[in-house]
Design a protein around this nucleic acid. Structure first.
Lengths: 228, 228
DNA sequence: GAAAAAGTATGATATTTGTCATAGAAAACA
DNA sequence: TGTTTTCTATGACAAATATCATACTTTTTC
């Protein structure tokens, strides 16, 4: 079993603030697991008994709306933590986490994380900072969803995905999503999203190759996102 | 100057976890201030140097969209804290806080709160718990805004406002908002919101008296919110 | 490698929502 | 008290978006 002290991934998250001893403790009781594409790490309503640290791969955090549609709220990638709320709360999780590519994740039991949280105020400050940042982003998304038309939201989503996941040698977004998944980010019907892909391609804003999408004209996309 | 140790309001927030000594320290360096209706406690982009504790009154947290429209993200009332992020971060705030009725608030400087956060893990756990809860609510709102039509969102907003602020002797919502403010919660045009008020009144879902709104048929409003 | 399934694409149409115009009601003001 | 300003209300219309139908492509499965 690999050791947390030697794992670079921890440097990307709040875990960077842990002391050597704390890391060794955590390393001793963590468990690694492999997650297949499409598998759920947890589902809405589950009770978590600890925190997940993502070693590789990407998952989407989704929530079902009462009309049956699923909304993608956030993506989680290498270096991110998942389930921080379980450190301080015994409530059920409000979101599902589903892998969109193969993943390697480590599970750290609540008790260990909790003791680090209690004894290491740098760590707890880091956790608070992370969650506050998530909250700020979530608030931005509320405004975006409430005030901007679907076309702007799609433009913004593309720019954010490029920012977060980068592009390959040919300039295509490294993250590959189905049209339906894009629709579930933007909050629109799949058909509407497909139409936008066609339109943006025709107008030279983006280019596609199968599922892959590449941003061609960032400036105009940004303008579209502003919706002025 | 009133003393935090004797202030009941603290029992509603994370401050309840502070020790007597910590409370006395904070009491010594806090400042009280009166906020007129319509005045801003802080605005998007400001840098906060501490946390506000709300003694009385209500304010709205808003964010401007790039198209100039303002979105109400959350309400803050008696017993709530404001600006928790400033405890662990020096970033500018992302939202404006504007009083919708007269308020009394206490300002607690960052340094004091920070030291309590560092030394009292019950307090820091409480803070994390609060913010996590806000994040959960924010995620719910993202889904709602993205997936539900305006009519459902208005129905949900009415139910949430009744839940959060209660009703007076006649059953009217205790919180009074202009039609424009309602529109800024729901994320729609003021005219559209006014039309919904008319429609819901006609159908017996709500009743109005000037600005005041009363829920008449909770069951049907809930159904509308589900949008089935 | 053929059949089935899932995903993508596009047209036609209905519904939802926003915008602009106008008018009445209420509140602020002088 | 009359006047101005803001807020509420409603109609007419335009724009945005969803839905339904259908066809084509790609992927999966046996």
């Amino acid at each position: 079993m690999s050791k947390c002290e030697q794992c670079i991934v921890r440097k990307f998250s709040s875990l960077r603030s842990l002391t050597k001893d704390e890391l060794i403790n955590i390393s001793d009781c963590k468990t690694s697991q492999h997650v297949e594409k499409g598998a759920f790490i947890f589902e809405e309503g589950d009770y978590l008994n600890g925190v997940y640290c993502i070693k590789s791969g990407i998952c989407k955090l989704t929530k079902l709306s009462s009309n049956g549609k699923s909304q993608i709220v956030k993506f989680i990638k290498k270096g991110d933590l998942l389930g921080q709320r379980s450190i301080v709360s015994d409530d059920a999780v409000g979101l599902s986490a589903q892998a969109i590519e193969e993943m390697e994740v480590c599970f750290i039991p609540k008790t260990e994380i909790k003791s680090a949280f209690k004894n290491n105020s740098n760590f707890s400050a880091d956790i608070v900072n992370d969650i506050c940042y998530d909250l700020k982003i979530a608030n931005d998304h509320i405004v975006e969803m409430a005030q901007k038309p679907v076309k702007s939201r799609f433009a913004i989503a593309l720019l954010e995905l490029e920012e977060e996941f980068g592009v390959d040698e040919e300039g295509f977004l490294k993250i590959t999503l189905s049209r339906e998944e894009f629709a579930n980010i933007v909050g629109t019907a799949t058909e509407s999203l497909i139409r936008m892909v066609s339109e943006y391609s025709k107008n030279g804003l983006i280019a596609t190759s199968g599922k892959k999408i590449k941003i061609q004209d960032r400036t105009r996309l940004e303008l579209l996102g502003e919706n002025i």
